[in-house]
Write a protein that binds this DNA or RNA. Structure first.
Length: 250
DNA sequence: TCACACACTGTGCATTATCT
DNA sequence: AGATAATGCACAGTGTGTGA
């Protein structure tokens, strides 16, 4: 079991938290279609590649990744990172003070990590406010938007590039380029990523990895494991062991 | 915006290793 | 022993560079 990774769902603030402690992180280019990710570097440093730029973040610094923004993340040596995930559909309703209080609570009582500095709390509040008032500025072609929604909600369906391009009234060559420009990933990468996200959501309802692989649209468990590890950074069984739901309060 | 060629990646299947 | 993880390989499908 990977004891350096913890996936926590906090029922009180309705946010998902991912904690890595002294880990070697390596996440190649990907995006999150439905969440804002706010990352707090606890120690060590990480390299974040986003919007064509590569930046190094060190202990105490905070970064934010809005939905659909392609990015890659690598630790420089070992690093500890806390990521707060906010659902984009609920971002406008979040209670910033409530989330900050929960983060402080979980940070000190659940993770035993000391306390966050005043500057970190201020930066966190600023980023939460950014999520709350964020509005998507990118214009998306309606046909691509529709396909993106299909792939997000039903990633398990089999639909090849030719069919997708046809439904968007484009040649497959143009469609792939257009999709990547507007979504950040190729259609295929986007579909695989959503299959894995779906698997993460329904993990606890499924006893068997082979069943889960079929249910999420993979041919078999071996491919499911391969992609799961590539995208999540853990094998499915390690992920299951490191996931927990927190509902206790002050 | 489209099409071609080619490199790259994913699929389907089989097999073996490791873990519980 | 059964479940899960990892790897190999051939083929099909996808993505990208380039030119029109």
């Amino acid at each position: 079991m990977n004891k350096n990774s913890y996936y926590i769902y906090d029922k009180v603030s309705k946010t998902e938290l991912v904690l890595y402690t002294d880990s070697s992180l390596s996440y190649p280019l990907h995006n999150h279609s439905s969440i804002f990710s706010i990352g707090i570097i606890l120690n060590g440093s990480i390299r974040l590649c986003k919007d064509g730029y590569s930046s190094i973040y060190t202990a105490g610094q905070i970064f934010i990744i809005p939905p659909y923004v392609p990015h890659a993340l690598y630790s420089i040596g070992k690093a500890s990172l806390l990521t707060i995930c906010i659902n984009k559909n609920k971002a406008s309703e979040i209670d910033i003070n409530k989330i900050i209080n929960r983060i402080i609570f979980l940070y000190t009582k659940t993770f035993n990590l000391g306390s966050l500095s005043g500057t970190q709390l201020l930066l966190l509040a600023e980023n939460l406010s950014y999520c709350k008032h964020f509005s998507a500025y990118k214009s998306v072609t309606p046909q691509i938007k529709e396909l993106r929604q299909i792939l997000e909600f039903s990633p398990e369906i089999t639909i090849n590039i030719e069919k997708m391009a046809k439904s968007a009234y484009m040649s497959k060559y143009h469609f792939i380029r257009k999709f990547k420009k507007e979504t950040g990933l190729t259609p295929h990468q986007f579909q695989i990523q959503n299959k894995i996200r779906r698997a993460q959501r329904i993990f606890n309802n499924s006893e068997n990895l082979a069943e889960l692989a079929i249910e999420t649209g993979f041919f078999d468990q071996s491919h499911f494991i391969r992609y799961f590890k590539k995208i999540v950074g853990l094998t499915p069984s390690d992920y299951k062991k490191s996931f927990k739901i927190v509902s206790h309060t002050f």
